[in-house]
Amino acid sequence: MKKLVYLLAILLAFSSCSEYQKALKSEDIKTKFEVGTQMYDAGKWSKANRIFAQIVPNYRGKPQAEKLMYMYARSFYEMKSYIEAGYQLGRFENAYPNSEKVEEIAFLAAKSYYQVSPVYSKEQQETVEALEKLQLFVNKYPNSELLPEANKLIKELDYKLERKAFEIAKQYNRVAYFESSDYEAAIKAFDNFLADFPGTSFKEQAMFYRLDSAYKLGINSIDTKKEARLNTAINYYDSFKKFFPNSELLKDADKMNEEMTTAVQQFNTKS
């Protein structure tokens, strides 16, 4: 019995393959549509896509066009061809704004951009585009059942941009080497980061590294600029301690503050 079932499965597979090959070579667009739909329903996305690509121009303006374009666009997403999927799904959304599938398609179009968003360490143009698309979806479909997932994706993308900006600012701090312009650039980078991402999970580290940059700038400054820069750094210390009184980094921050306070006192004594 098992052998019979196995043989039937093989025969069905060969039959399906043969039917598919015939449909590819056929000039009958109706046959292509039917076989392509069978492939799509069976989850054979690549085969379905290949057939659909042959007949899309022939169905423009016809009643079956909406179904065909839905399956064609969706097959790109299922094939993980996300760039093409974003384009084709967007075309469907524009062409059939009243379709019962348009909300689903709009979400998948936006999600296609999310899928090509790179790791935070790389250029984030795709991430910005994905955020824009997902935000448009949220604004357009505020009551969608897909809203929780859309917000989850937005949160992930926001974090990438946040991490990217933090690492750039941190890099300024790392590469600075007793050059005032280097430390000033680091301080500005952290100031911008904290302004752009007020609720960031990196706030503690950002405020500490800003203090560290200001501390190094002040300690290594010439006398005419030293006092003012040290006082600025001490203000950064006060802010850090206020926001994070139990920080594990506070011990290092306290050492900086002690050195800066002593330096300011000595500077005042001299003057």
Rank of each mutant, 00 (worst) to 15 (best):
L161Y: 10
D223S: 14
L68N: 02
N151V: 09
K3F: 15
T224I: 12
E78C: 09
Y70I: 11
Y72M: 03
S99P: 02
Y183G: 08
L136W: 13
I154F: 07
F92V: 00
S46V: 11
I29W: 09
A48F: 14
K170T: 11
Y77K: 04
F137W: 12
E27I: 08
K32C: 04
T31L: 11
E78K: 15
E27P: 03
Q205P: 04
S144M: 08
Y20L: 01
R50K: 13
K242P: 06
Y114R: 02
E93W: 05
N151H: 15
S144T: 06
K30A: 14
E103N: 05
L136T: 15
F166N: 01
V128P: 01
K67P: 12
K122R: 15
F202L: 03
P63C: 01
F137V: 12
N257T: 08
K44R: 14
D191Y: 08
Q21I: 09
D254N: 13
M71F: 11
E126F: 13
R60F: 00
L12Y: 07
A106E: 00
P97L: 08
E27C: 05
D196H: 06
A233V: 10
L211E: 04
P118H: 10
A189Y: 01
F208H: 03
L146I: 06
R174Y: 13
Q171F: 11
D223E: 14
I29V: 15
Y209V: 07
E104W: 15
Q125C: 06
A9Y: 01
T261K: 15
V264K: 07
